[in-house]
Design a protein around this nucleic acid. Structure first.
Length: 309
DNA sequence: AAGACGGTCAACCGCGTCATG
DNA sequence: ACATGACGCGGTTGACCGTCT
């Protein structure tokens, strides 16, 4: 079985393109356009797959492409759009003249994800980590919460370590029965602190925060909301957020140009699990636009390069 | 100086959707 | 209505390069 290959792989060159190949492709497309990618390599004298030619053209050779660093405004747009459409890189790129979906995707994966994580925001849902944990806590019984928190620790470990070590975030732990900030020198921020110790301290802080939250609302919410939707919002703060609070300021929720609009709580509509494409995306977006109670994204429609979104 | 490591980005792969017959 | 081919998309890989140890 299997899929029919788009071209004869035996006769096809792969890997990096040479300047000569670029010239052949560019000059052919300049003369004949981009109709029928399957025929283009043959007619242009290239031993390449049509797919490879299309990719090379759209991501590199197109004359309208803009190279260079992403501006703050572009990053702002990417984050906002991603909070609405998720990993629809082509949709997002359509709003950024001169940028390709590949550019946007790479920039997101290499820079923006870390930037958001560093601010305590989950790059998938665009919610604060503390908000996610609170939502989990309100819908599960305490024993399940404990297990989930343990699993979440694994997921967030890298981000946590990045925050606590590289960013030098002050991280101070509550000792049992001792809530005052007794140590000005963050143990986790020190180089000599190894990862295992840090993880253990994260676990301790999370456990403590869970206990505190559990005393207030977990049980009640479990009783009443077991099969209901997630609460529209929750004021419960625990887990990662409360741990930051132990050490003082949460990370970087400041006047950063694009930190204000990314997270408006549970109204976020992020990628999570959705994987529809094409027209279904547009339909979904139209539905979202009609939902005035679910407004997250405040980019005026006339700011958009592509009104489809 | 050299190897290890991590970040970046171009390119590839496989799947879904669309257009056409 | 269905089959088929072409295209577009998102995820992933791997080469390259700079930094660290």
């Amino acid at each position: 079985m299997g899929r029919i290959p788009c071209c004869e792989k035996d006769n096809v060159k792969r890997g990096q393109w040479t300047p000569e190949e670029d010239n052949k492709l560019s000059s052919y497309i300049a003369q004949h356009g981009t109709r029928n990618w399957r025929l283009i390599p043959k007619n242009a004298g290239l031993q390449r797959c049509g797919k490879s030619c299309r990719l090379r053209w759209t991501n590199y050779l197109r004359p309208d492409l803009m190279r260079g660093k992403f501006t703050d405004a572009e990053e702002h747009t990417i984050v906002k759009l991603h909070s609405v459409v998720g990993n629809r890189w082509s949709l997002i790129a359509a709003q950024l003249p001169g940028r390709t979906d590949n550019d946007v995707k790479n920039h997101w994966n290499t820079k923006l994800k870390k930037k958001l994580s560093g601010m305590g925001i989950d790059p998938v849902t665009h919610k604060p980590f503390s908000h996610l944990m609170a939502e989990i806590a309100t819908t599960l019984a305490p024993p399940q919460v404990a297990h989930l928190a343990e699993a979440a620790l694994g997921c967030f470990k890298d981000e946590m370590l990045h925050l606590l070590t590289k960013k030098r975030i002050d991280f101070q732990l509550h000792q049992a029965g001792n809530n005052h900030h007794h140590n000005q020198q963050s143990s986790a921020a020190k180089h000599e602190e190894n990862d295992e110790d840090t993880i253990e301290k994260i676990k301790m802080g999370l456990s403590r925060a869970m206990q505190e939250t559990g005393n207030t609302n977990i049980n009640n919410n479990w009783e009443s909301n077991n099969n209901d939707q997630l609460p529209a919002s929750s004021s419960a703060h625990f887990g990662i957020s409360s741990m930051f609070q132990c050490g003082g300021e949460p990370p970087s929720f400041d006047g950063d140009a694009w930190s204000q609009s990314m997270c408006t709580g549970s109204t976020c509509t992020a990628a999570g699990g959705e994987n529809r494409r094409g027209r279904m995306d547009e339909e979904k977006l139209d539905e979202d636009d009609d939902d005035d109670d679910n407004v997250l994204w405040d980019l005026p429609s006339d700011e958009l390069m592509n009104p489809m979104v």
